[in-house]
Design a binder for these strands. Sequence first.
DNA 1: CATGAATGAGTCTTCATTCAT
DNA 2: TATGAATGAAGACTCATTCAT
Lengths: 212, 212, 212, 212
Amino acid sequence: MSSAPSFKRLPRAVREQQMLDAAVKVFSRRGYHAASMDEIAEDAGISKPMVYAYLGTKEELFVACLQREGTRMTEAIAGAAAPELPADERLWRGLRAFFGFVGAHRDGWAVLYRQARGEQPFAGELAAMRARLVEVVAGMLDHALRAEGREIAGTELEVVAYALVGASESLADWLADHPEADPERTATRMMNVAWLGADQLLNGVTWHPSAG
Amino acid sequence: MSSAPSFKRLPRAVREQQMLDAAVKVFSRRGYHAASMDEIAEDAGISKPMVYAYLGTKEELFVACLQREGTRMTEAIAGAAAPELPADERLWRGLRAFFGFVGAHRDGWAVLYRQARGEQPFAGELAAMRARLVEVVAGMLDHALRAEGREIAGTELEVVAYALVGASESLADWLADHPEADPERTATRMMNVAWLGADQLLNGVTWHPSAG
Amino acid sequence: MSSAPSFKRLPRAVREQQMLDAAVKVFSRRGYHAASMDEIAEDAGISKPMVYAYLGTKEELFVACLQREGTRMTEAIAGAAAPELPADERLWRGLRAFFGFVGAHRDGWAVLYRQARGEQPFAGELAAMRARLVEVVAGMLDHALRAEGREIAGTELEVVAYALVGASESLADWLADHPEADPERTATRMMNVAWLGADQLLNGVTWHPSAG
Amino acid sequence: MSSAPSFKRLPRAVREQQMLDAAVKVFSRRGYHAASMDEIAEDAGISKPMVYAYLGTKEELFVACLQREGTRMTEAIAGAAAPELPADERLWRGLRAFFGFVGAHRDGWAVLYRQARGEQPFAGELAAMRARLVEVVAGMLDHALRAEGREIAGTELEVVAYALVGASESLADWLADHPEADPERTATRMMNVAWLGADQLLNGVTWHPSAG
DNA sequence: CATGAATGAGTCTTCATTCAT
DNA sequence: TATGAATGAAGACTCATTCAT
C-alpha cells in the first residue's frame, strides 16, 4: 500500500545480523550466563520468539556469535600474512592484523576469548579455533625452518606457537580493556617479545617494522 | 572406643577447608554460574546451610577460593625466585615454580584463570592478582637492565612483562588440559620462548637449565 | 466455535486484578510473611512467574494491594461526606461510608489495618494513609468550630481526631470479625460514642440519624 | 571454688526473664516473623539451645512474651481503677494507668498490639486479652448505669466499650511512636474524647482531672 | 548445664523456552 | 510473520530446630 520505509519485515539475513550484533554486545557485557534472552531480544528491537525462530536456543545463539566473530578474525589474519614473505614479515603482518581486529571489535573479542573460555559447552569450540590459529603459526615457523634446511619436533614447535598465541591473546585482552591504547603499537611490542625474546631486549636489540 | 576418624562434628577450620576444596573442584568443572551451591555442599559432604554459615554467599565463596588459590600460587613463586640470582636464573626458577604449581593444582588454576576472567564481579580481583605478578616480572627485567646500566620506559617494560605472563598463562592452560604433560618440560619450553625469542629459536639457539 | 469464556490468555489488566484479588485474600488470611507467593499465584489461577512479571516482588505486590484498597476506601469516604453539611451530618455520612466499605471488603480491610501495621516496610505507607484520614477528620472538626467562632490548638484537635479514627478502626476490626454484624448499626454506635461521649450516653442521651 | 561474680549458672528464673526481655525487644523491633531465634539468643547473651530448653519453640516464646506483658498491663490497670469510685474517676484512673504503662513499656506494647494483631496463631490470644479489658470497661459503665437505675442492652454496651478501648489503643500506638510525648497528657486527651464526646468538645465543654 | 555443629524444609526469585492469537 | 501471555524447572538463601560433645 505504502512505500514509506517500514522497519518491519526486513529480509531474514538482515534480521539475523541485527540479532547477532545485539547478542555479541550483550554477551560481552554481561557474560554468557548473566545475559538474558530478554535483554538480547530487546536490544535487537525484536520479540523473543523471533530470536528463537531465527537463531535457535541460547546455546546455539552463542555458538553463532562465536563462529561469526571467529570467522571474521581468522579471515582478517589469513588475508594479511602472505606465505611468500619472510618469516618475520609474515609474523608481523599477522600480529598487526590480529591486534587491528581486536581493537576494532572489542565486544567480539570479549565474547570469543573471555566468555567462551570458562563455559563448558563452548570450551571445545573455542579450543578448536585456537588450535587452527596455533597450527597456522606453527606452520609459519616450520616453513621458515625448512627454508634453512633445519627442523624441530612437531610438539616442540606447537608449544612455541601456543605460547606466542597465548601472549598475543593476553595483550589483546589488555588492549580490549584500554580503549585509548593503539593497536599498532601493541602489535609492535608483541612482535618484539615474540621475535627477539627477553634476552636480546635486555641487551638493547629491538625490532622495528621495515616500511609499514 | 574407636579412634577411627569420625566424619561428623568436625571443627570449623577443617570443614572450611573441605568446603573450599569442593568449591574449587566444582567451580573449575562447571564454571561459576553453572556451579550450584547444592553440588558444592554435597561434594563437601555437608549440608548447604553450613556452607552459608561458614563461607557466606556464592560470591563470597568464590572469592575465598580465588584468594586461597591465589595466595598459594603467589607464595610458591615468590619462594622460588631469589633476587640475588641473575635474571635468567630467576626467570627460570619462577617459571618452574609456576608450572609446577599449575601441574599440581589444575583445578585451582582453572578457577583462577578460566572462571574468574569472564565474570564481572571477579575480574577486578583477578586483574589485581595478575597485576602483582606482572609487576614482579617487570621488576625482574628492570633489575637486570639497571645492572647493565640501561633503562627502558616503564610502560614498555610492563607490556613485555604482560606478554610473558600471558604466554605463561596460556601454556598453563594447555598444561591443565593435558594431564600427561610434564610441568618441568613445559617450563623449559616457556623459558626458551621468553628468553630467546622466535628469531634465535629459528636459528638453532636454545636455552637449557644450567644445573637443576 | 464457542463463546464460553476462555480462561487462558487474558489481557494484562484483567490478570492484574485477578492477582490483586488473590493477593488481598491470601495476605489477609495468612499475614504478610506467612503468605507465600505460591499460594497467591495458585489462588489467582496463574503461575508464579506471571505474578512477578506483572506486579513485581512480594513487597511490591503488597504495596499494590495496600494502594488499591486504600484508594477504594478513601474514595468511598470522600464521596460521602460533603463539606456543606453540618458537622454531625458529615461525620455520620463519613462513618456510614467507612463501615459500609469495611463490611463489603473485609479482606481488604484486614490487609490494610491488620497486616500493614506491624511490618516495618509498610508501616510508613500505612501511617501516611491514616494521617490523611486524621487530617480530614480534624478539618471537619475545625470547620465546625470556626463556624461558631471558636478555635482549638492544632495538636489538640489532631489528637481528638486520632482517637476517633482509632475507635473507628477498632470497631471496623470487630465488624470484620463478625460477619453477621450490620455495618449500618455499627456506624450508628460509633457515631454515638464519638458524638456524645460516655457521659451523655450514661445519662440517657442518644443520637439518631435524622433521615437516612 | 571462687566467689568472684560468675555471669553463668544464674538461677533459672533470672535467665528466663533475661530471655523474655531480649525476646520482647527483638520481636518489637523486627516483628514476629522477621525476628530470628539467633538474634534473640544473642541479645540475651545465651546460646540458642538454652532458649529452646527454657522457653520452648518460637511460637511458645512469643506467647510467653504476650502473657508477661499482658499480665503486667492488666495488673497495672486493675490496681488503679477502684470500684467504689464514681464512673468518671474510675475511667480516668484506668486510662492514666494504661497510658503510663505504654509509655514505660513501649517495646512490650509493640509486641502486644502491633505484632500479635496480624499473626493468625496469636490473634486469638490477643483477642482474649482485649475481651477481658472490654469487659472491664463495660462493667464500669454498667455499674454506673445501674447506680442511676437505668440499663442498656449488653451488646450495645460492649460496642461502646470496644470503641473506647480501640481509641485508647490507637492513641497508645501514637504514644509509642512519639518518645517525647507525655503519657499523662495523652491520657487526659483520651478522657476528654471518651467522656465528653465531640459534640460537647465542640461546644467548649472540657473535662479536667479533679485532683491527681 | 551449655554450646558449636549440623540440617530439613521451605521461600523468593529468575530464566529459557513455548503457545495461542 | 510476529508477539503478548504463559510456565516448568531450578537455584540462592534462610531459619527454626536438634544433636553430640
